[in-house]
Amino acid sequence: MKYIHIDHVEQGQHLGKTIFSGNGAILLSEGVQLTVYMITTLKRIGVTMVYIKDPLFEDIEIVDIVSEETKRAVIQRMGETFDSIRSGKDFNTRAFNGSIDNLLDEIMRNKDVLVQLSDIRTKDNEMYVHALNVSMMAVMIGIQLDLPATQLRELAIGAMLHDIGKVEKITDDEAGDSKLHHTWRGFEVLKNKRELSLLIAHVAFQHHERVDGSGTPRQMQGEQIHLYAKITAVANTYDNLLFDESLGRRMLPHEACEHMTALADTHLDREIVIHFLRTVSIYPTGASVRLSTKETGVVVGQHKGLPGRPVVRVVKAESGTDLEVAEIDLAKRTTVFIDSVLA
């Protein structure tokens, strides 16, 4: 299957990956034949990228570090947690922790798989998918740093709840009060949860601090910022660069990685950025690319440790109706490079 922009989807094509709502329910199932109405609806609810089945690439397997079932369960639990907070109720910590444990188990089993953030987002589920992605990436960085299991669990929970302070809306009159910044509000919500480590509350509090002291809300710097918050900041920055339209043009993964490298030692901790770059798929499987040879193809395979040198399948039309299919392994073809990613 191929990962393409919604504007390039055509009537009659088949969806390659299931789309979920904010509460984890299925909106459209994998394999459904798309109609004009479906495509229009996907655009209306904020979907920008989708997986489409393609007979030339039907053997491509998108390997995720977490299964669709676990993702759906976590998204559902996040929806319940945030709904409880919105209504002024206490959220179920035991149920939430159970979903985190399942998430951690799967990540540990698949820790050698490169992360690629290809889950289809809608306006309804984007807050929950963002929280899930930040938590997954934070744990992968933590594994690179050899954090023990107890710390990985704290990190996973803190990263999952880093934006919990955004759940309660504030008025324009309140917006100027620094104590009402979502980092402060998140800290206030979490510090009173006795079942959770206070360090988890500090992730919500510090994830917008910068190592050079220019961050918010307290302009902390360097070692004043807790390791969990530094890790979460890196994961949060990457996901925002890819999907947050308020930051301007959404970046492609390779662009976001270059941008984050430039932010090392100012906004982000350099060592953590280096560990992060070892875990992420710069050119996601299914993405269409143009090579330095002027050929176009689709990424069909990855190399752990060489995220910038994937395997690309090129399909050329020969005389008549025959097609020539060739796979170029950029880890071996060292003189060939990816020039651009085709949206």
Rank of each mutant, 00 (worst) to 15 (best):
A25L: 09
K111N: 05
D329K: 01
D172N: 06
T40W: 06
V336Y: 06
I45S: 04
M160P: 05
I170Q: 04
R210C: 08
S135M: 02
T40F: 04
K230Q: 11
D339I: 04
K17R: 13
F96R: 05
V134H: 04
T293G: 10
L114T: 07
E10M: 12
G12T: 09
V298D: 03
H303R: 02
R210I: 04
E209C: 00
D265Q: 14
L42R: 09
E271R: 13
D339H: 10
T232R: 05
E80V: 11
T285A: 10
D54T: 04
Y128F: 10
I107C: 01
Q144F: 00
D7N: 15
T40Y: 09
E324Q: 11
M220G: 02
M160W: 04
R210P: 06
Q11W: 00
E209G: 01
D83Q: 14
L145Y: 03
K17I: 00
F91K: 10
V234G: 06
V299C: 08
L330D: 09
G31C: 06
D90S: 15
E58L: 02
R94T: 14
V280G: 09
G213Q: 07
A235L: 06
A256D: 14
I4H: 02
T150K: 07
K71S: 07
G320Y: 08
L27P: 08
A331I: 00
E318A: 13
K111D: 06
E324C: 05
Q221P: 03
L15V: 06
V273T: 13
T40K: 15
R309S: 06
L132C: 09
T285W: 03
H208Y: 01
A149K: 12
T216W: 01
F96T: 06
S178Q: 10
Y283D: 13
K89M: 15
T150F: 08
F20H: 04
D172R: 03
I60T: 01
E195Q: 15
R270G: 13
T150V: 11
N102H: 11
P284N: 12
S246Q: 08
G22C: 08
F337A: 11
R270V: 13
R270F: 05
R290H: 12
V115D: 06
R77N: 12
H254Y: 15
S288T: 11
V341G: 08
E327M: 01
I65T: 04
D59S: 07
K2R: 09
T48E: 15
E10Y: 02
P253N: 14
N236W: 02
G308S: 15
V36A: 15
G320T: 03
G16Y: 00
L34A: 05
P217Y: 01
L252K: 15
